Computed example of a mutant assay.
Amino acid sequence: MDFFYDERHVLRHSALPGPVLDTLFGRGAVHTLDGQAHRIRKELFTSHLMTPDGVQALGRVAREHWLRTADGLRGRSAVLFDEMAVALAGAVCEWSGVPCAPGAAVRRPAEDCVTMVDGFATPGPRHWKARRARTRQEHDLARTINDTRGHTAPTCGDKQHSVLDAVATHRDADGSLLDLHTGAVELLNVLRPTVAITWFTTFAAHALHRFPAVREQLRADGGAYARAFAHEVRRCYPFVPFVGGLAARDLHSVPKRCLEARWSSSTCTATIATRPCGPTRNASTRAASSAGTPVLAS
């Protein structure tokens, strides 16, 4: 995998098709940058998101939101996928400092994030719904960033150390603040992937339903076994097929030769293949979350 992460081999700019940018990642996102511009933008995420303390804090908040959700579901039927999406949306908004309100208000960003992921690689109505969802969220988050820069927005969490504050004050390689649209894109690139974990939590519930003995081992063994279980869920329930890139020059790697600036299938070095292609939120995924799968494995 070191080959694919080497910037001498793969370029991001212009690699992702427009329909993917307009639904999933957003125009001007960190995923589209190279070189120094990419490294400086990436620091926005690595310094505020991908730190041990940050990940643990988000995990704690997500657990609290889910337990509150589960308590409210006791004694009645519910669709796990839908309820988990709302719980994760509320958690990541609170953790990142995005103004949020409990209850129905958080359902709109949850539903929009789900719609973006559900429709980014599909033609027709699902794709256009995904575009509209992204436009709506970018508009709302741009307004939030503008208010934050003017010190007028209420926040959920510690504004001084929030992801929202980091995005609002981040300066790119040229020293300028992110324009409001790009800031909204990057803030959404924190919220949306967190809500997308809904797919994996639903897959995990389905796995626990099929293999109930695993539940007891998870309770008993904790960390190491839980990590192994999570990796096995990712292997057996593939979600995102690959991340695209362009060959920076003519490259040779087993088993294919890839020419400069070519974008091709996952067998070529122009594309980073992480997992086999698999389902998104289709009918079978929804069925796994509602037909016979417990809302909470306690």
Score class of each variant (00 low, 15 high):
residue 12 R to F: 08
residue 28 G to P: 05
residue 179 D to R: 03
residue 177 L to P: 06
residue 163 V to H: 06
residue 297 A to Q: 13
residue 282 N to W: 02
residue 100 C to Q: 11
residue 200 F to I: 10
residue 178 L to I: 06
residue 64 E to T: 09
residue 104 A to P: 11
residue 151 H to N: 13
residue 148 T to D: 13
residue 185 V to K: 00
residue 213 A to G: 14
residue 50 M to E: 15
residue 9 H to C: 07
residue 293 T to M: 02
residue 64 E to W: 04
residue 66 W to F: 08
residue 274 T to N: 07
residue 221 D to G: 06
residue 78 A to C: 03
residue 202 T to V: 12
residue 157 G to M: 01
residue 207 A to Y: 02
residue 40 I to V: 15
residue 184 A to R: 02
residue 30 V to L: 06
residue 8 R to T: 08
residue 122 T to M: 10
residue 9 H to G: 06
residue 258 C to Q: 14
residue 290 S to L: 11
residue 37 A to M: 04
residue 9 H to L: 06
residue 261 A to C: 09
residue 116 M to N: 01
residue 126 R to L: 11
residue 198 T to P: 01
residue 162 S to Q: 05
residue 62 A to M: 10
residue 181 H to N: 11
residue 117 V to S: 00
residue 124 G to M: 01
residue 80 L to F: 09
residue 195 V to G: 00
residue 76 R to K: 11
residue 283 A to E: 15
residue 127 H to I: 02
residue 127 H to Y: 03
residue 272 I to K: 03
residue 138 E to Q: 13
residue 150 G to R: 15
residue 178 L to A: 00
residue 175 G to K: 12
residue 60 R to E: 14
residue 129 K to T: 08
residue 77 S to W: 05
residue 53 D to R: 15
residue 77 S to G: 15
residue 125 P to W: 03
residue 287 A to Y: 08
residue 38 H to N: 05
residue 21 L to M: 08
residue 63 R to K: 15
residue 89 A to R: 06
residue 140 D to W: 09
residue 252 H to I: 12
residue 76 R to I: 10
residue 212 P to L: 07
residue 24 L to P: 03
residue 119 G to K: 01
residue 264 S to C: 12
residue 204 A to M: 02
residue 32 T to K: 04
residue 264 S to Q: 15
residue 124 G to F: 02
residue 223 G to I: 00
residue 14 S to R: 15
residue 298 S to G: 15
residue 50 M to R: 15
residue 142 A to I: 05
residue 17 P to S: 07
residue 290 S to Q: 10
residue 198 T to E: 00
residue 233 V to A: 05
residue 10 V to R: 00
residue 255 P to H: 09
residue 177 L to N: 02
residue 124 G to T: 04
residue 218 L to F: 02
residue 57 A to R: 12
residue 156 C to M: 13
residue 64 E to V: 10
residue 155 T to P: 14
residue 289 S to F: 00
residue 272 I to F: 12
residue 182 T to S: 11
residue 218 L to S: 05
residue 129 K to M: 13
residue 195 V to C: 03
residue 148 T to Q: 14
residue 69 T to L: 04
residue 29 A to N: 10
residue 80 L to C: 08
residue 198 T to S: 01
residue 289 S to G: 14
residue 36 Q to C: 07
residue 104 A to K: 12
residue 241 P to E: 03
residue 57 A to H: 09
residue 159 K to L: 15
residue 16 L to A: 11
residue 147 D to W: 04
residue 279 P to Y: 00
residue 9 H to Q: 05
residue 17 P to K: 12
residue 249 R to C: 07
residue 274 T to I: 03
residue 243 V to C: 00
residue 176 S to K: 14
residue 255 P to N: 07
residue 257 R to T: 13
residue 50 M to T: 11
residue 234 R to H: 10
residue 43 E to F: 08
residue 10 V to L: 04
residue 189 N to Q: 11
residue 219 R to T: 10
residue 112 D to T: 13
residue 217 Q to W: 03
residue 251 L to P: 05
residue 192 R to Y: 05
residue 171 R to K: 11
residue 19 P to R: 02
residue 230 A to M: 05
residue 263 W to I: 09
residue 282 N to E: 13
residue 6 D to W: 01
residue 168 A to F: 00
residue 137 Q to N: 12
